[in-house]
């Protein structure tokens, strides 16, 4: 067992190393400048009063769970964050997210590595809200080995770690297409993209190791039943799961994951602003009053 593990690890490391150099080669080869231009999206969380669309973040979580989580971790998040104030599953009736029924169910859907308390053997058990999102791969070489040498980045702060933020993530997800003729035929010879690379003009160098992750209807969105506030219920139809819709939703989720305190930050910020305006006015009045008889 241990021997096999060592071999796998060494193999993984070697593939990783060669993949690294392959990446460099690909960058040099595909360095042609593309005319791709990122478009700014009209996100609900933009601006001084922007907030997250909770239903979109919930759908985005579903996209993450069913698609992204195959390769990408969320190392800085715990399940409980989903049910905390500002989170997509926050419920004012259960302000402690550990009691949140929906969050409990979502956590239960994951397997968390643990140690058996009696035997000390490594085991896997269903998650609880207090657990962190689990690592997808045990280590970096393993991650690279499973992905042709490329390392799937952690997504916890991805909208902050990329220039362009949420606009860039959305743009990247919707910009996959076939290699255009002029790209293929540059320098007069037919160009073969390295195996495992995919054409995406939104990515620097236009060649990305991640295959197009989203296709239409890869996810089944469920309609949601909510209380209408008059004792009855109301059904909100789920939007069609197009690539654009899926990309928007998962980007909204990642924006929340990267900045979960945004709503409270903007709210407090507004109060601070209001206070400082009044305080400045009072300070100014005091200053003028004290100086009224002073020639200066």
């Amino acid at each position: 067992m241990a021997n096999r593990l060592t071999k796998t690890l060494i193999g993984a490391a070697l593939i990783g190393l060669s993949g690294l150099s392959l990446g460099t080669v690909a960058m040099a080869a595909g360095g042609g400048k593309s005319d791709h231009k990122m478009e700014h999206q009209d996100w609900g969380f933009n601006g001084m009063f922007g907030t997250y669309d909770r239903l979109a973040v919930q759908r985005g979580y579903q996209v993450y769970r069913e698609v992204c989580a195959a390769c990408h971790a969320l190392e800085h998040l715990s399940f409980r964050h989903l049910g905390e104030k500002g989170g997509p599953y926050y419920n004012p009736k259960t302000p402690n997210p550990n009691d949140n029924v929906e969050v409990k169910a979502l956590a239960n859907d994951w397997l968390i590595p643990d140690i058996d308390g009696e035997t000390g053997d490594p085991i896997e058990r269903p998650g609880i809200p207090a657990d962190k999102f689990p690592d997808i791969y045990p280590n970096e070489p393993a991650a690279r080995a499973s992905n042709g040498g490329a390392l799937p980045p952690d997504l916890s702060v991805i909208t902050k770690a990329r220039t362009g933020g949420a606009d860039y993530i959305y743009d990247l997800l919707v910009s996959y297409k076939d290699m255009p003729h002029e790209y293929k035929m540059k320098d007069g010879v037919e160009y073969e993209m390295p195996i495992g690379m995919n054409y995406n003009p939104a990515f620097e160098g236009s060649e990305i190791a991640m295959a197009a992750p989203l296709v239409d209807d890869i996810i089944e969105y469920a309609s949601i039943t909510v209380s209408d506030g008059h004792g009855g219920t109301e059904t909100i139809e789920a939007p069609a799961a197009t690539v654009e819709q899926l990309s928007r939703d998962v980007t909204e989720f990642l924006a929340w994951a990267g900045d979960p305190k945004m709503e409270v930050r903007k709210k407090i910020g507004f109060s601070v602003f209001l206070f400082l305006f009044i305080f400045s006015a009072l300070m100014f009045a005091t200053y003028k009053n004290i100086w009224r008889d002073v020639e200066h």
């Binding site: 070697l14 190393l17 060669s18 150099s21 392959l22 460099t24 080669v25």
Partner: peptide, 14 residues
């Protein structure tokens, strides 16, 4: 470092 794994025209980083 095992250099036999580095193919011609390639580079590894350790």
């Amino acid at each position: 470092i095992d250099i036999s794994k580095v193919a011609e025209g390639q580079q590894i980083k350790a």
